[in-house]
Design a protein around this nucleic acid. Structure first.
Lengths: 215, 215
DNA sequence: GTCTATAAAAGGATAGAC
DNA sequence: GTCTATCCTTTTATAGAC
């Protein structure tokens, strides 16, 4: 039991510890309130009420509003790209592999929960720069690194002509975000339908393959 | 003098009206404070102090914090794409025309002032949906509409194979935003250097032309 | 129009009992 | 650990004098 407490701050209680479900209730409530209202407009009273707990209990567990916010949101960042980070098989058809990746990426990123997280992280990037960095590392950067590795293999095998693998990977995800990303950030549009997702994925894959055709 | 007052709320005083420079000082101060602190963290006291004016004077001019915020930011949105909306010459070389547009777009959009505006509009998109819509119309949508018109001409003349002009225009700007847009939104990166801008522009134009080559 | 002064409310944080 | 009650600062907004 020498693990730092910060490492398990948000985990489920270990069996044997004195633990009610209140901490988890606070985490769940704070997640909802912070993601929907933002840091400033979220009050500790509202979080306590939403959790069905007194305000003092919230302070006993997390100390201060800043600490609660950072703990909650950095934890949310960790799971960002889980559905996207499936291994890209080196052997298969690049068009199919990239298409699958594209569909997973779009389906994950445009989720209401992920967009709300991104909005709040952007809004508080000045006050919580480490949170912004954690979001970028766990989200966009992780996706780019995975794809860059796959693209390097395609280049080595002469299947695609990749100059800078990282730059090409960034271009791919930029095409996938497209204009919809802006409208989603501005809350002007609901999550894309299956048909929209398919259209964006196909447009991006076709453009990417055309731009990196060998010879 | 039948123009609605809202239409000239932020304009310079008409000659002949009784008008000190205080209104303009308030506008300038509120712009700075709102863009750097956001809506919630910006206090009317701070705005009044920054303007060198009493708080009551701010309220006399703008009534309430909400109204001041909306007036200021919607006005800022209006000028968003002015440097980008230069007419694209129909006759010239598409690679050069698109490259020029790309450089103008990047140089304009990644400006600290424009990124700060975008951050605040995103953060308050739930509370001020009309502001978010105004931003999108005056910024991304205007740029897309202009480019779509130009692309339609290229398609008609057989120079490029454009299926859906709006979709292609959106793809072009998405490639220009690239990964840098995310890092700028998260305040992880300063505005791109001239060399970075050039690299992104060239990568995007090349990919766009390859993806829309005729035949 | 502009200022000083003040009201009225909200919110972060803590004290002390159990 | 948890709750009730409270402190104290900040902040929006207004009153009233000049």
């Amino acid at each position: 039991m020498t693990r730092a407490t910060t490492a398990r701050t948000l985990q489920t209680a270990t069996v044997g510890e004195a633990q009610t479900g209140k901490r988890q209730a606070i985490v769940a409530a704070a997640t909802r309130v912070f993601l929907s209202a933002g840091f400033g407009a979220a009050s500790m009273d509202a979080i306590a009420a939403e959790a069905g707990v007194s305000k003092q209990t919230v302070y006993s567990h997390f100390g201060a509003k800043d600490a609660l916010f950072e703990a909650i949101l950095e934890d949310k960042c960790r799971g960002l790209m889980r559905p996207v980070r499936l291994p890209a098989v080196p052997g298969g058809d690049p068009a199919k592999t990239l298409g699958d990746l594209a569909r997973r990426f779009i389906a994950t990123v445009f989720t209401p929960a992920n967009m709300a997280l991104f909005r709040v992280v952007i809004a508080e990037s000045a006050r919580f720069p480490e949170l912004a960095a954690a979001f970028y590392r766990a989200g966009p950067a992780a996706a780019v690194d995975d794809l860059a590795g796959y693209l390097t293999g395609l280049d080595r095998d002469g299947i695609l002509a990749i100059g800078d693998a990282t730059a090409s990977a960034r271009l791919f995800f930029a095409m996938l975000r497209g204009d919809i990303y802006i409208r989603r950030l501005l809350d002007l549009k609901p999550a894309p339908s299956a048909a929209e997702m398919e259209a964006v994925a196909e447009q991006a894959v076709a453009a990417f393959l055309a731009a990196h055709a060998p010879g």
